[in-house]
């Protein structure tokens, strides 16, 4: 897995690519937590290049969302491929996370 952090019109977008699994989740978590400890108001995660996410990846986002809710921050997930969306649905988390089709929808909401 590779993680890029892009600045899009002043919004921070985390762009992981490849598999988010047991072995790459810790890296994703440390990136996420680094931004969260800075109390970033809104964080965007772009899933376009994610091929697979397992329960450790889901758990990482659950942790991130929990931490952000404490200070009123928002974690928005964008561009989920159908396979990934399905996994969120199975985990009953598709209504918990803010999920958007693309970055502009996410920024606008």
């Amino acid at each position: 897995m590779k993680i890029d952090i892009v600045d899009y019109k002043g919004h921070l977008i985390i762009t992981p690519s490849g598999d988010i699994d047991m072995y790459s989740s810790p890296e994703l978590r440390s990136e996420l937590m680094r931004l969260i400890t800075k109390k970033t108001k809104a964080l965007y995660v772009d899933f376009r290049n994610v091929s697979y996410i397992d329960s450790s990846g889901i758990a990482t986002f659950v942790e991130g969302l929990k931490k952000m809710k404490l200070y009123g921050g928002r974690l928005k997930l964008i561009g989920l491929p159908e396979g990934i969306m399905e996994i969120f649905r199975f985990s009953k988390l598709d209504n918990i996370f803010e999920i958007y089709g693309n970055i502009d929808d996410a920024v606008g909401s």
Binding site: M22, Y23, S25, P26, R29, S55, S56, I58, A59, T60, V62, E63, S91
Partner: peptide
């Protein structure tokens, strides 16, 4: 087998 944080594992266990 993994280097996951304890807090992440706790979420996974509950899942």
């Amino acid at each position: 087998h993994t280097q996951l944080e304890e807090s992440t594992m706790q979420v996974m266990i509950r899942m």
